[in-house]
Design a protein around this nucleic acid. Structure first.
Lengths: 228, 228
DNA sequence: GCTATAACGGAGACCGACGTCCGGTATTCC
DNA sequence: GGAATACCGGACGTCGGTCTCCGTTATAGC
């Protein structure tokens, strides 16, 4: 798309320059490199290496995307939308159990494949309102998914949205550790989990579910964390 | 303990000097600082900060403990032994279900409290045979714990040691994220998990359990990992 | 083509962490 | 008390990562 800078000055409609072609090209290269490195090395992949992979200097990267979050915003929208589509497909499934179970397996499967995209649902997108918006939408759908399954007796009555988020979170940890050695181990783990949310097996949970307000603060952990 | 360096030269029994008192004192300070920082900031806490906290220079730290693992070896033996004691208590419980469930809750509880000691069971202690040994002992006990519970029908027949390790691993992730906001949220998660290993009406798991050999390679992930 | 300038890209400053070296000091032993 | 020396500690080199500045280059507009 040939976008022209909007003329903010109001009065004199002075034509702006078209974007330089090399700029457009470099931007594309940067996005491709970022997609690749984020997926393989995680959302904290070194920016300089992204620049190198893209075949541009670091200066160019920072001009296009002044912060890491800016780059996230450009790159992560697509996978987040895919995630959204996933929930919606689950919602459309009249078999409530299959909806929930399928969603969980697919989500966890995606995460297990693309290692870097773990935690798409749990990282803090501080300056990225678009991403936040999509994630909020996803969470709303999940809540609805759970609610329906619960009221129709497909899953235990005390199961909550947060519980489900925690399951995917748990899965990230398992997937990360097992990826190289036993790339399918996560599946077993999820199936085990699934058994825990069937209604007929439910035993009372001691802790009350978290309040909705807590979720936001909880799941959005500060971006850089060192594990171990 | 006033240890004297053993005279390796065999022939002339020349008395060695006693350890200098300041050396002993500094070592203690370093251990105390390491215990504190490992517990609060994780096993990857900056060594320089440990030195500073102990009130000594970095040189002193590296003389006493040339590598991070050396420091781990001195500091982590105690918590690992505590863990071992925990499993043994669980083994001693004639109520198999209570043994397994109690062990899981206590382990996860410990992890949730001392944030840094997450992953005691899953980090790689490359040059620390003493730690490895204890951990191996723990794993053997866990295996036995699971075996008994399984053969006596207290838990589902297809549940394995690895499954249990993954549960604690999952729990680390949840505990880490929720610690500040909802310090008890992990409990609910574990209870959910517990429901999944009850024997009645378990649903078949698609993937076969991992081979024992894989566990070692799997769980012992390389020490430095950056999350996200 | 020519010019104005948007965009490039790399050198390099800064930072936090690791690990070493060595002049100075404290402690032990006599 | 004095000598020998084990030990201290911080200055410093290195490294990987972030981010900026600015001289150079490529492109758009004419």
């Amino acid at each position: 798309m040939l976008e022209r800078v909007a003329d903010e000055t109001g009065g004199t409609p002075r034509r702006a320059r078209a974007r330089r072609s090399d700029s457009v090209r470099n931007r594309e290269r940067l996005l491709a490199a970022a997609r690749e490195l984020f997926a393989t090395e995680g959302l904290q992949a070194p920016l300089d290496r992204i620049a190198t992979t893209a075949g541009v200097g670091p200066g160019t990267l920072y001009r296009h995307f002044p912060t890491r979050v800016a780059l996230w915003e450009a790159v992560l929208e697509e996978p987040l939308r895919a995630q959204l589509a996933l929930v919606e497909r689950a919602l459309a499934n009249p078999d409530r159990w299959a909806g929930v179970a399928g969603y969980l397996m697919e989500t966890c499967g995606h995460e297990a494949e693309r290692g870097g995209y773990l935690n798409l649902m749990t990282t803090r997108y501080d300056g990225a309102p678009r991403l936040l918006e999509i994630r909020t939408a996803i969470q709303r759908r999940i809540t609805e998914l759970i609610r329906r399954a619960r009221t129709e007796g497909a899953i235990r009555p005390d199961f909550t949205t947060e519980d489900l988020l925690f399951i995917t979170l748990s899965n990230s940890a398992v997937a990360e550790v097992t990826r190289e050695v036993a790339p399918n181990a996560w599946r077993r783990n999820v199936e085990l989990f699934l058994d825990s949310l069937r209604p007929e097996r439910a035993h009372p949970l001691s802790e009350p579910p978290m309040e909705p307000g807590q979720v936001a603060r909880t799941m959005m952990r500060p971006a850089p964390r060192r594990s171990n």
